[in-house]
Simulated assay, not measured.
Amino acid sequence: MDVKIVKETKYRVKSVWKTLQGEGLFAGRPAVFVRMVGCNLWSGYADTRERDAARTGASCPMWCDTDFTKEGSKAYTASELAKEMRSKGGDINFCVVTGGEPLLHLDAALVEALHQAGFFIAIETNGTVPLQEACWSETHGKLLAPDWIVCSPKLPQEELTLEYFDELKLVLPDYHPKNYQAFAQRQRYNEVQNNPLPLLWLQPEDGTRLQEATQMAINYALDNPEWRVSVQTHKILNVE
């Protein structure tokens, strides 16, 4: 009788570290961050910025400063990664899985392992990978999704396949609310004191256009109070 050997999935991780969440609803909250390798919009290497921007139609390759390349990364099984996160984070039960694009890696098995380890799972995604594709569990016959989803889209709304999100973050000036009105309706509303809490953020691009983008964000929020201006508190506090 042949014995079928099932290999465990391994997840390519750039880094795991303890820090404070810097943006959004959970700004200031202690967190364990996990940065996955790779993105479907940019290779992560400077010499491919123009090529990838032309290939994908996204502007983010031209200014993204995140290092999600494979150099220095490590492969973990789901249980190994959960153990490493617990080792780095101690008693911290809030984790943020980011990238690159985390839904290229995060799946039902990893979600289940992190939940079993006691983590509340937040992710930061560009909205181009559907949850049903990434996190459907054949074993359980249902979706095992992250607990909290922050979407920062980098393609036009008609190309976004993410079914829902909890927070929407648009990086100005390239990604403007007027171009994401339909997509914004996919937000899950969370109740606070019996009132819906819209978590729609305007994030000024941190580069040569910062002053222009900041003023644009302020002006738009003042005229459209369902939107908020996002402040990168981790940079103010000088934490990674």
Rank of each mutant, 00 (worst) to 15 (best):
67 D>P: 06
99 G>D: 00
89 G>D: 08
59 S>L: 15
134 A>G: 00
45 Y>L: 12
39 C>V: 14
101 E>I: 03
98 T>V: 11
84 E>M: 02
69 T>E: 08
61 P>F: 12
96 V>G: 08
94 F>M: 08
57 G>K: 09
132 Q>V: 06
121 I>D: 01
100 G>I: 00
135 C>T: 02
114 L>T: 04
40 N>Q: 14
76 Y>H: 01
62 M>W: 12
103 L>S: 00
100 G>T: 06
117 A>V: 03
79 S>I: 01
96 V>L: 07
67 D>S: 02
43 S>H: 14
41 L>W: 07
110 L>W: 07
88 K>F: 03
43 S>D: 14
79 S>R: 13
93 N>S: 11
128 T>M: 10
66 T>S: 14
44 G>D: 08
99 G>Y: 01
123 I>W: 08
90 G>R: 12
81 L>K: 06
86 R>N: 14
130 P>V: 13
53 A>K: 09
47 D>R: 15
123 I>S: 00
108 A>Q: 01
93 N>Q: 11
119 F>E: 07
80 E>Q: 15
82 A>L: 03
54 A>T: 12
62 M>F: 11
127 G>I: 07
84 E>W: 02
60 C>Q: 06
120 F>D: 09
60 C>W: 06
99 G>W: 02
62 M>V: 08
91 D>G: 09
80 E>Y: 06
81 L>A: 09
72 G>N: 12
69 T>Y: 00
99 G>Q: 01
107 D>H: 02
58 A>V: 08
41 L>V: 15
72 G>Q: 13
114 L>Y: 03
79 S>T: 11
112 E>T: 07
47 D>P: 05
74 K>Q: 12
84 E>T: 03
101 E>D: 13
59 S>H: 15
100 G>V: 04
101 E>Y: 02
99 G>C: 07
90 G>A: 09
117 A>Y: 06
90 G>H: 09
57 G>N: 05
115 H>G: 10
56 T>K: 05
131 L>K: 11
122 A>F: 04
130 P>N: 11
50 E>W: 12
116 Q>W: 05
136 W>K: 03
39 C>F: 14
71 E>A: 13
52 D>H: 11
44 G>R: 07
117 A>K: 07
58 A>Q: 03
48 T>I: 09
73 S>N: 02
77 T>Y: 04
49 R>H: 07
92 I>H: 03
65 D>S: 15
97 V>T: 01
108 A>W: 02
133 E>V: 11
133 E>G: 00
87 S>P: 12
93 N>Y: 05
110 L>P: 05
89 G>W: 01
96 V>Q: 00
60 C>N: 10
64 C>D: 03
126 N>H: 04
64 C>H: 01
136 W>M: 02
89 G>N: 10
83 K>L: 07
89 G>L: 06
62 M>K: 13
111 V>A: 02
126 N>Y: 05
82 A>W: 05
71 E>W: 07
125 T>I: 07
61 P>G: 09
43 S>R: 12
